[in-house]
Design a protein around this nucleic acid. Structure first.
Length: 588
RNA sequence: GGAGGCGUAGUUCAGUUGGUUAGAACGCCUGCCUGUCACGCAGGAGGUCGAGGGUUCGAGUCCCUUCGUCUCCGCCA
């Protein structure tokens, strides 16, 4: 039906007669001559309908926005004054001598390339929104990324294996999406949160290099970077160490950046220990483009009487940190109040600060509402340990460690971006040496930091009393402050796996019910193995600088997990439920 | 489960202290127009102010409930 895409037509086809198809972006009717901007994913081409061909002209008069048309005509160069510099095809136009309307369109609910359209409109009429050049770009980039990933792994001897979507519910982790079984009354499948156990079993099955672009499902609340169904690059290998996986991933991202973003410079991958990350940044996904860091000042304050600090000085679970903001004296009272307010959602009670207008004049050069509670010596120590210069501002946070960490890591991010402190670069950071367990604040039970199949660094540690001190062979990859992937070396020994389940508080019966198949499989010659998984949607979002992973998906869901295009989820017929032996509760 | 923002024409939005007939831009329709490119000009149509309730002589505006959407907290091994 066509020889070229719209924007493929250029001066190289000058005076040739070509055929192309597309959507009508705009029509400009001058009475005597009609211009049509014809659009496809490549761009826009101006076509000209002259009145001398009455048949064509009358068709052109009936054409409206988003009509699908086919045109044949001669590629003509535009006169000097008529060149449009904003179009890649702006030096030429096609003079039509055949024009066919392939399909009509209702008047569109919004202009296709108007980027002000509200998202609910875009999602309801997603087929219109997908014609937008940005969505075309995003989804085509995503496709190229997946193609590159597949080739990368195929080239290195990896096997792409599909794992079930209908599978078994797993305890811990996220809430499962459940699918009722018709044949097995009162039993349910679960959609996979990840192919974790299947890929481990593939290792036992002798596929020593596996990968998959896998759909995963988690029934949890949504965020800009979280959807109920999302796509992971899932990788697993046998007979490898942590280093092998890390080097492989670094190679993958180097190629992605070179081939897809045309970034040729060698990517640096920082490595940070989990404990250091928490101490310096208050979180396990720091953005190392940001120069702001936390400094512990508990020791300096050990003799202070000021209650805000003294309450926490001798509390093991508390943390007291300083955050120096270079040039922060320019911050207004209003913005400091804003920052103080913004960290209250993490449970922080307040945000003390001192302005170091002149560090050589403690009397007049240091200004702070809390100055009267702090001795000169301590002030000097604080200035020294933070290496504060004149015009810097120092924030203080004293509270339970988790509150300090959450609020201050938020503040680091917020101020870093407000004051434009971030370096303009891509920052990859591996976080390693994670704890194996974390204590759930509500249930007071230990849960896995990564997942229950993660290998401890030393098996003997499992017998120690200090469970929270046990380190794991887990690793996360962080890009510009976003967790894009994580993995671990897995447990390949049945006894070790059993021990972990026990430490997690599972009894024999639960272990049997939930993980019998895994433990059995471990009994039949499981090779040492490990792997990693990456969030494809998140990677596309970051690489393209998008505000949400919804813009990386053709058909995403809203924050309340509904699809505005199809109106899913929806009620089902009673017959369907009966067949599944399901009765709904009338919740009011 | 919680906090906050938004919801007014097809779309994006304005709407003052509660006050007469709810506006703009774009889009749409009709007419004019042979070089525009967000064409232009003239005219026109188009509103359950998300829904329900309340206060009031009077509600787009105030109050309550509710729905939708977005951001965040909790949650997300």
């Amino acid at each position: 039906m066509k020889d070229y895409f719209c924007a493929e037509i250029s001066e190289s086809q000058l005076n040739k007669t070509i055929t192309t198809c597309g959507w009508v972006a705009t029509r400009r009717d001058h009475g005597g001559v009609i211009f049509i901007d014809l659009r496809d994913h490549t761009g826009i081409l101006q076509i000209v309908c002259n009145p001398d061909n009455k048949k064509i002209f009358s068709i052109a008069e009936r054409i409206r926005s988003e009509y699908v048309i086919q045109i044949t005509g001669k590629v003509t160069s535009r006169k000097k004054g008529a060149v449009n510099k904003d179009l890649s095809t702006g030096t030429i136009e096609v003079v039509v001598d055949k024009l066919e309307i392939l399909n009509h369109s209702k008047n569109p609910p919004f202009k296709v390339n108007d980027d002000e359209t509200n998202e609910d409109q875009r999602l309801q009429y997603r087929y219109m929104d997908l014609r937008n050049f940005n969505m075309q770009k995003n989804l085509r980039f995503r496709s190229n990324l997946i193609k590159l990933i597949r080739n990368f792994f195929y080239d290195r001897g990896f096997i792409d294996i599909e794992t079930p979507i209908l599978t078994k519910t797993t305890p811990e982790g996220a809430r499962d999406y459940l699918v009722p079984s018709r044949i097995h009354t009162e039993k349910f499948f679960a959609l996979p949160q990840s192919p974790q156990l299947f890929k481990q079993i593939l290792m036992i099955g002798g596929f020593d290099k596996y990968f998959q672009i896998a759909k995963c499902f988690r029934d949890e609340d949504l965020r800009a970077d979280r959807q109920p169904e999302f796509t992971q690059l899932d990788v697993e290998m046998s007979f490898i160490e942590q280093q092998n996986i890390m080097r492989l991933c670094e190679e993958l991202f180097s190629i992605i950046f070179k081939d897809l973003l045309n970034i040729k410079t060698k990517l640096e991958f920082d490595i940070l220990e989990y404990n250091d990350a928490m101490n310096e940044y208050g979180c396990d996904k720091p953005d190392l483009r940001n120069p702001l860091k936390l400094i512990d000042i508990k020791k300096i304050l050990k003799n202070i009487e000021f209650k805000v600090f003294s309450d926490h000085v001798n509390n093991k679970n508390s943390r007291i940190t300083a955050l120096k903001i270079p040039g922060g004296c320019t911050l207004t009272r209003k913005s400091i109040d804003d920052y103080t307010d913004s960290i209250k959602k993490f449970g922080a009670k307040g945000l003390a600060y001192i302005k170091c207008e002149n560090i050589n004049d403690i009397e007049k050069g240091i200004i702070s509402p809390i100055k009267k509670y702090i001795s000169k010596d301590i002030l000097q120590d604080i200035i020294k340990i933070t290496d504060a210069q004149s015009s810097d501002l120092i924030f203080f946070s004293a509270d339970k460690a988790c509150i300090v960490n959450e609020s201050m890591s938020y503040l680091i991010q917020r101020i870093g971006s407000d004051l434009r402190l971030l370096k303009d670069e891509w920052s990859f950071t591996w976080i390693v040496n994670y704890p194996l367990f974390k204590l759930d604040a509500q249930t007071k039970k230990y849960t896995s930091m990564h997942h229950p199949f993660t290998s401890p660094q030393n098996i003997e540690d499992l017998d120690s009393e200090q469970i929270s001190e046990i380190k794991s062979k887990a690793y996360d990859l962080v890009l510009n402050g976003n967790e894009i992937g994580g993995g671990s070396i897995r447990i390949h020994n049945k006894d070790v796996q059993n021990k972990i389940f026990k430490l997690l508080g599972l009894n024999d019966k639960e272990i049997q019910n939930k993980f019998d198949f895994l433990l059995n499989a471990l009994d039949y010659g499981c090779p040492p193995h490990g792997g990693i998984a990456f969030g494809i949607d998140r990677i596309v979002m970051l690489l393209l600088g998008l505000p949400s992973i919804r813009d990386t998906m053709a058909f995403p869901k809203t924050q309340s997990s509904s699809c505005l295009l199809t109106q899913a989820p929806s009620h089902v017929d009673k017959e369907q439920l009966t067949e599944l032996s399901i009765k709904t509760l009338n919740k009011k």
